Simulated scan of single mutants.
Amino acid sequence: MSGTPRSMFEPGAGPAADPAGNRHERRIRSFQPRRSRVTTAQREALLRHWPHWGVEVDGDSVLDLPTLFSGRPVVLEIGFGMGEATAEMAAADPDTGILAVDVHTPGQGNLLRLAEQRGLTNIRVANGDAIILLREMLPASSLAGLRVFFPDPWPKKRHHKRRIIQREFVDLALTRLAPGALLHCATDWEPYADWMLEVLTATPALHNLSPTGTFTPRPATRPLTRFESQGLHKGHRVRDLLFRYEP
C-alpha cells in the first residue's frame, strides 16, 4: 500500500487528503490527522458545497478575503471539531466571516451541512495545516480575529513542543491580525491554560482583557459545546483567554 494518503473524493469535488503535499517543509505538527467514518449526510454536504465553500490549504496562492467573504471582516478559527459552535457563532454574527480550518473530514462535512441547514453564507471551510494557511495564504493585517478553542493539549512533557500556542506561532499570527483584532483561546486542560497565559502575556503587542490579568469568564459569544458540557460534568475547569492586538 502506498504511503501517500488518498482522498475519498474526485479532484475538485471534496477536500484533498494532503493539499500541501511536499511543497512545504516538514516540521513538528501540532495536530494529528483523525481517521473516522464520514456519514452519508456529511459526504453529500461536502460534494454539494466544497467547490464553492471549501478552501484547500495548498500554500500556492494568497486568498482574496474580501471577495471570498463579500467584504465582511474575517475571523480565523483553528480547529472546529464537528462545527456546532462555529455554526452558532456564524448565525449570531452574520456580518463577520469565519474562515474555519481543520483536517478532520467528518467535521468539515458536518459544518457544511449545518451551514446549509441554517442558510449561513459567512462560513468558509479550509482543509489543511493552519500554519501554512497563516504563513503562505493570508495577507498581512487581514484578520479581525483569531480563535483557538480546545486545541490538543499534548499533556506529556516530551510533547509540549507540539502545542500550537507557542511564541513562534503567536509571532506569525500577529503579522496577519489587524490592529484591534481579538485573539481568543479556550482550553479545559489547566496546565495548558497556564502555558497559554504565559506565552500570550509575554507578547508586548497583546493586551489581556481580563481585569485580573489572567483568565476571563466564558463570553456569550463563545457557545457552550457538547464536548465542553461533558467536561464540566466531569469537573473540568474551562479557561478562556481574551487578548486584543494593540501594535
Score class of each variant (00 low, 15 high):
residue 115 A to S: 04
residue 125 V to D: 06
residue 160 H to M: 00
residue 113 R to M: 13
residue 132 I to D: 03
residue 159 H to T: 03
residue 133 L to E: 00
residue 166 Q to R: 14
residue 108 Q to A: 11
residue 160 H to C: 00
residue 117 Q to G: 01
residue 154 W to V: 07
residue 121 T to F: 07
residue 159 H to Q: 12
residue 122 N to E: 08
residue 128 G to C: 11
residue 110 N to K: 14
residue 156 K to Y: 09
residue 120 L to T: 13
residue 137 M to D: 09
residue 147 R to H: 13
residue 148 V to S: 08
residue 153 P to C: 10
residue 166 Q to W: 05
residue 154 W to R: 03
residue 122 N to F: 03
residue 141 S to G: 14
residue 152 D to C: 00
residue 122 N to R: 06
residue 164 I to L: 15
residue 126 A to I: 05
residue 154 W to K: 02
residue 136 E to H: 07
residue 148 V to L: 13
residue 143 L to C: 03
residue 149 F to G: 04
residue 143 L to A: 04
residue 125 V to K: 03
residue 138 L to N: 08
residue 120 L to K: 13
residue 148 V to C: 14
residue 153 P to R: 05
residue 156 K to M: 10
residue 130 A to Q: 10
residue 110 N to E: 15
residue 116 E to V: 02
residue 118 R to S: 12
residue 152 D to T: 01
residue 156 K to E: 03
residue 120 L to Y: 12
residue 131 I to S: 12
residue 112 L to Y: 09
residue 145 G to M: 01
residue 163 R to K: 03
residue 158 R to Y: 07
residue 134 L to M: 05
residue 127 N to C: 14
residue 122 N to P: 08
residue 129 D to R: 08
residue 119 G to Q: 07
residue 160 H to D: 01
residue 130 A to F: 10
residue 151 P to I: 03
residue 130 A to I: 06
residue 139 P to G: 12
residue 146 L to G: 06
residue 131 I to M: 15
residue 149 F to L: 14
residue 121 T to D: 15
residue 120 L to Q: 11
residue 145 G to P: 07
residue 163 R to D: 05
residue 124 R to D: 02
residue 159 H to V: 00
residue 146 L to W: 13
residue 145 G to Q: 03
residue 142 S to N: 06
residue 113 R to H: 15
residue 116 E to P: 06
residue 162 R to T: 00
residue 129 D to M: 06
residue 124 R to P: 02
residue 150 F to N: 04
residue 162 R to L: 00
residue 158 R to E: 06
residue 147 R to L: 13
residue 123 I to G: 05
residue 137 M to Q: 15
residue 128 G to D: 10
residue 162 R to V: 04
residue 118 R to I: 03
residue 143 L to D: 00
residue 121 T to K: 13
residue 120 L to I: 14
residue 149 F to P: 01
residue 109 G to T: 10
residue 116 E to A: 15
residue 125 V to L: 09
residue 116 E to Q: 15
residue 124 R to I: 05
residue 136 E to N: 08
residue 157 K to C: 01
residue 135 R to L: 02
residue 134 L to D: 00
residue 115 A to Q: 06
residue 165 I to M: 11
residue 123 I to Q: 07
residue 141 S to L: 13
residue 114 L to S: 12
